[in-house]
Design a protein around this nucleic acid. Sequence first.
DNA 1: TTGAAAGCGCTAACAA
DNA 2: TTGTTAGCGCTTTCAA
Lengths: 332, 332
Amino acid sequence: MAEVAARAGVAKQTVSNVVSGKKVRPETLAKVNTAIAELGYKPNLVARSLRTGSTSTVGLFVPRVANPFYSEVVEEVENVLVGHGYNLLLATTRDDPDYTRAHLENLAARSVDALLVAGDNGVEQQLPMLVDAAFPVALCAWEGDAPTTLPVVSIDYEHAGFLAGRYLRDLGHRNVAVIADLPAHSPRVRGLRRAFADDGLAIDDRQVFACTRDDAAGGFAAGSAALEADPELTAIFATHDVLAVGAIESVVRSGRRVPDDVSIVGFDDISQVGQIQPALTTVTFPKREMAQQAVELLLRAVDSGRPPTNVLTLLRPTLTIRDSSAAPRATG
Amino acid sequence: MAEVAARAGVAKQTVSNVVSGKKVRPETLAKVNTAIAELGYKPNLVARSLRTGSTSTVGLFVPRVANPFYSEVVEEVENVLVGHGYNLLLATTRDDPDYTRAHLENLAARSVDALLVAGDNGVEQQLPMLVDAAFPVALCAWEGDAPTTLPVVSIDYEHAGFLAGRYLRDLGHRNVAVIADLPAHSPRVRGLRRAFADDGLAIDDRQVFACTRDDAAGGFAAGSAALEADPELTAIFATHDVLAVGAIESVVRSGRRVPDDVSIVGFDDISQVGQIQPALTTVTFPKREMAQQAVELLLRAVDSGRPPTNVLTLLRPTLTIRDSSAAPRATG
DNA sequence: TTGAAAGCGCTAACAA
DNA sequence: TTGTTAGCGCTTTCAA
């Protein structure tokens, strides 16, 4: 920069002004620009960051990237950030409080401008640190009790579960099983139960199968267990789509058909499940809208230099009916 | 830092030595550490980066994150980086040379320590810039002609296609269609063709269907077109799994069955396709090994301060046979 | 082993 | 509008 200034016959400050687009007399601007071009000068953003304390970088915490739900969130967050001229520093928490804390300290030391936390697993314990962070923090896809001290962009998980439950109930299903990632997804299960309870029907604890693994294999195992426990089963609600995919397999392997014998309803509407056989009926989670709103909330705070507006935004989930669900067969 | 030094009664330099784990007399160390604890001192990594020119941050370019192949790569890259104490700056190129260039300049200005580029689409044009970068660059999942100037960790795509082709040929399939993302995936198609050519069989251009969309819907459309063009079709090779999922749907929708009427073979072995119905036969791409090796290659270069060893590493793809493929029905 | 001084490249604040 | 000065927080250099 000093070289550029010397070559253009101006002060470093003037070069700085040119680079950051401040007001400069046109002829000075031209001189500086040619000097920049001739020397191939590129500003050093680390130095700028040290001086200004801001890095144009936003951190994002997700439990895992190779989970279709979160990979879509990551993609959308990056989209929005790039649109605003920000960078994405991605960290996976693995649902592990220790990882989360280590990453948090690292981000703080690197002075990121903001942090978005997606998913609540393993993060609850770090909430005090998040609140005290020197930069704006927002939470999204938060299913547990939302802290009142931080802005949250999420959906009403209980209502989302209710949508699935009401749908199955109205179709006439009575022998229903739930396969769930517990305790993480209990609000979804609660919503489903409420839908049946509204009609005087109870979903027993024995109808709820917790998955030991959070992947399709876990869904397969839980689905198989559910079918064995109640061979008369006519519907399965899986608390997320990946489990639902495993559940479909368990039904098919047992010699039953979907949806003729057993209906399956999932949760999330990850991009793949609309195309599998049978196309999955699921609760659609507006992931991209969520990511967008959360990032924009943060960037507004960054730009204004004030803490983010502390709101709880709940987007509306909807039910997307495809081919994996139908009314139960009339019991001859 | 000055405060800590003052409180401990030492020079700033000594504090620096303590923080970066250099040799310090035990009693001095203790004094400094208590001062650090009392003041809650946290080193400023931006300042360190300005001084040292290194940021403990590695850039990763992927075309898209919400593509199961790349999301697995991202996850593994992050894993390895965290294991080595590095951060991940993630950028999506969207297969767009302009985005790629902009991101590249940004990373350079932020002085990342290294850059890993996954996928070649839209990146070829930036190769000269990549070669000239001030930091180590490596390429992975590179399907086009690999540049000799940069290290590459990839697989032999042509051979991978050959594996799929040989398998289908040996099963006895003769009416085969290919649905492909072209021209990106032509090596895979070439390999398939070679397998058939070895047996004196030719795969005609009319049997190759280019997808207009790079998702399951594109696979569905291409699959439908293929079935219409040749109703006697007994096998479809899709150049990646997401297309294969769409192809399965097209077969089922046409009233045929997989694999009884039509076999489907995919490519990549993304984590979902082992669990769908029918479980997909596919060419397994050792993505995580690839990511690991590429990152470690880069970090070795960073640590040694020398350019990365310029090697071409080709991992071995394998064929994973599941339920979507079988011998063609004997034509009565 | 420790201390003092210098400077990484930039921008905020003020003066001209 | 432009130039000067100072300093962000750290590490490198050199001297004690």
